[in-house]
Amino acid sequence: MLSFLAVLIDGTIYASWLFLVAAGLTVIYGVMRILNMAHGSFYAIGAYAAASAIGWYFADGTGSAGVSFLILIGAALVAGLVVGTLVERGLLRFMYGRDETLMVIITYALLLILEDAMKIVFGVNPYFAYQPYTALGRSTIAGLKVSNYDLVLIGIAVAVGLALWGWLERTNLGKILRAVIHDREVARAMGVNVRRMFTLTFLIGTTLGALAGALTAPSISVVPGIGVEVIVLAFAVVVVGGMGSIEGAAVGALLLGLSRAAAVHFAPQFELFVIYGVMSLVLAIRPQGLFGRTLVRKI
């Protein structure tokens, strides 16, 4: 029973991280139909911004955990909004309406450019922002030691998921966005400023990606290449859950997180394979993902 509890706790923690990483990607695809390969770079930029801000805050050896959390979130918001605005206004707005395959190529090129830009700005040495992680200490759950920071991460993931769902399902702006998702041409004919909706959606997506990176920074060493590593996992989550579905991203993250935790505890030799195995199994049974909608082709 202790092993199963460990799987449940570890899997939920990993799933919360996966959801935070994938949420911005699925929001952008759901509204804009852009498979954003550069999403991993926004994650990395958020991690670098947060690590730099935390390093500055704790430079004199003093500081509080509460303030450090505000710094993490503030750094993510600033990084996501600034970089997202530059990318959307400077590049993507000229590409709207193009073929989805072309958009994948463009965002992949952007990923390569941003990866090199981060090396120029931040260098290649690792950045550390461990202070918020260690400041919260640990708790004991049924005999298992669990980091309080990881428990906070679960709460943040739940809050982000509920906020996105409430925004899309319970607000007028969310209803407009869902109209754009279902039929852009009709939404435009009804007076909706589709391009403005695209700008808002992209900024939300980039900010969520930067937030995921900022919240991950205290538990890792921030080094070049972390964005490339997470983009594959983010794609796995949205593919399993269904492209563009917030509920699907949550269920997909939970399914993959628990599967990976079970592999780590009971069959560690399959840890690297299990996520892609689950993804392959889901796609074999339901190609559009668990919560994906079958799209009607316009002729």
Rank of each mutant, 00 (worst) to 15 (best):
L92T: 10
T101Q: 14
L162E: 07
A263R: 01
R195Y: 08
N148H: 12
I226L: 13
D183Y: 04
R93H: 12
I220C: 05
V21S: 05
L70G: 15
F266Y: 15
T134K: 07
L283P: 01
V27H: 02
G292M: 01
L281Y: 09
E100T: 15
F19H: 01
A214H: 03
S280F: 15
G55A: 13
L151H: 11
L254H: 01
R188I: 00
L164D: 03
V158R: 09
G277L: 15
A51G: 10
L112D: 03
Y127K: 13
V160L: 12
D10I: 08
G61V: 12
Y108H: 11
R178Y: 06
H265L: 14
L255T: 03
G155K: 07
G227N: 03
A23V: 13
M279R: 00
V21L: 15
G213A: 10
G24W: 01
R93C: 05
L215P: 01
L144P: 02
V7M: 05
I141Q: 06
I285Q: 04
F42T: 05
G137L: 11
T206R: 00
R178S: 06
V228H: 11
R196A: 14
A44T: 11
L70H: 08
L18I: 10
L81P: 02
P126V: 06
K298S: 10
A263H: 03
V83W: 07
I154H: 05
A179G: 13
S219A: 15
A262L: 13
Y29P: 00
A142E: 08
L112E: 07
L70A: 15
G213I: 09
M103D: 02
R98V: 14
G74L: 09
M32R: 04
R188Y: 04
T171D: 06
G213P: 02
D116G: 10
L255A: 11
H265T: 15
F58Y: 14
A65S: 15
V78Q: 06
G90C: 09
I9D: 01
L211H: 03
R93W: 11
L255M: 12
A53F: 07
L254R: 00
G242F: 03
K298D: 06
F202H: 02
L77W: 08
G205I: 03
A49I: 09
T294E: 11
G227D: 02
L153H: 04
R188N: 08
G84Q: 05
Q269G: 14
F198P: 00
V124E: 12
G227A: 09
V264H: 05
V251D: 00
G277R: 07
G166H: 09
K119G: 13
L8F: 13
G63N: 09
A236I: 02
S41E: 14
W165Q: 10
A142S: 14
A75C: 11
V192Q: 01
L25Q: 07
F273T: 12
L177A: 06
G209P: 01
S219Q: 15
L281W: 08
F19D: 00
T206M: 08
I176H: 04
G84D: 06
I106E: 05
I105P: 05
I54V: 15
G80Y: 02
I231T: 06
L114W: 06
G191N: 09
E271F: 06
M118A: 14
G252R: 01
T207R: 00
